[in-house]
């Protein structure tokens, strides 16, 4: 992909002007994070980590984002497959609905969730009669994360499934795979880099979720106060805690990003053998 593009640009002229014009943007995007890294001494960071709001916020963020990631992947993968192979006239509407949370301000998502699951909301009386409380619980945190992060996974997964060669699936089916087998043994392994990338992106988005959580789940240490909410509150008492929390979140995000970049290549090496195995096992299954 890359070399031909570069050759075209090289043919047009020097690339230096592009870099010079782009450099301010790169600096603007990168310098704040370097500044974050250099702004605090190790003593500040350890003081921040020792603060009573740090531990619960970190643990809550880890728990809730893992739960929301599982929900997003389990429900999002079949949806993405349907979006990829479905009749465009039908999928188009659903695609727009799925994209909705991306363009909605998180505060709007928070109010909308409150109007849905809150006491005065659409399902409020029903949930109340079942004795279920959603707002101000960890469930609300997870719901907010699922809503804001699912679109990123579903989009990436649908794009990855669309790139799967339909012929390969047909070959798999002629070799005796059921449609489920063709999906699990051929489509999923081929799309795996895209699925993993989408999942990492969704996880990162869930980890950073702030606005909808604040409005829908409230802010209570240990129950609904995730890392971004703790940063917000810590700014008003002890800036060191806010910086320490920010550094940890930033470090996790960088790790996610690195994984995001490295994973497709690693899977790329693996998937050829997986696919061969999938087709072979299909052949063996044939009577």
């Amino acid at each position: 992909m890359t070399p031909p593009t570069s050759r075209i640009v090289a043919g047009v002229g020097s690339r230096w002007p592009l870099l010079i014009l782009g450099a301010p943007m790169v600096l603007l995007l990168a310098v704040p994070f370097l500044a974050l890294g250099f702004s605090s001494s190790p003593a500040d960071v350890s003081a921040g980590i020792a603060d009573p709001i740090f531990g619960p916020a970190l643990w809550l963020s880890v728990r809730t984002t893992l739960v929301s990631l599982v929900i997003v992947v389990l429900a999002g993968t079949p949806l993405a497959w349907w979006l990829a192979v479905g009749v465009p006239s039908r999928t188009r509407v659903v695609e727009v609905l799925v994209d909705l949370p991306i363009v909605m301000p998180p505060a709007v998502v928070g109010i909308a969730l409150l109007q849905t699951f809150g006491r005065g909301g659409v399902f409020g009386p029903l949930l109340e009669s079942m004795g279920v409380q959603v707002p101000f619980t960890a469930t609300a945190v997870v719901l907010a994360q699922v809503v804001v992060s699912a679109p990123f996974y579903v989009q990436a997964a649908a794009a990855a499934f669309r790139r799967v060669e339909p012929d390969l699936l047909i070959v798999g089916r002629t070799l005796g795979q059921s449609s489920r087998g063709a999906f699990l043994r051929i489509a999923v392994p081929l799309a795996l880099p895209g699925l993993v990338g989408g999942a990492a992106l969704a996880w990162a988005r869930a980890l950073g979720e702030f606005g909808a959580t604040l409005l829908f789940a409230g802010n209570l240490t240990g129950t609904t106060q995730t890392m971004p909410l703790a940063i917000y509150q810590a700014l008003e008492s002890d800036v060191r805690v806010a910086v320490a929390l920010s550094l940890v979140l930033a470090a996790v995000s960088v790790l996610l990003l690195v994984a995001l970049r490295a994973a497709p290549r690693a899977w790329g090496l693996l998937h050829s053998s997986t696919l061969a195995r999938g087709v072979r096992s299909a052949g063996e299954a044939r009577p």
């Binding site: 809150g118 006491r119 619980t137 209570l220 609904t224």
Partner: peptide
């Protein structure tokens, strides 16, 4: 169940029911 950063946000939680 929640700690808010200003009094009007505190009040809004009751107003919302």
């Amino acid at each position: 169940v929640s700690e808010e950063t200003n009094v009007r946000l505190v009040r809004s939680k009751v107003e919302l029911g």
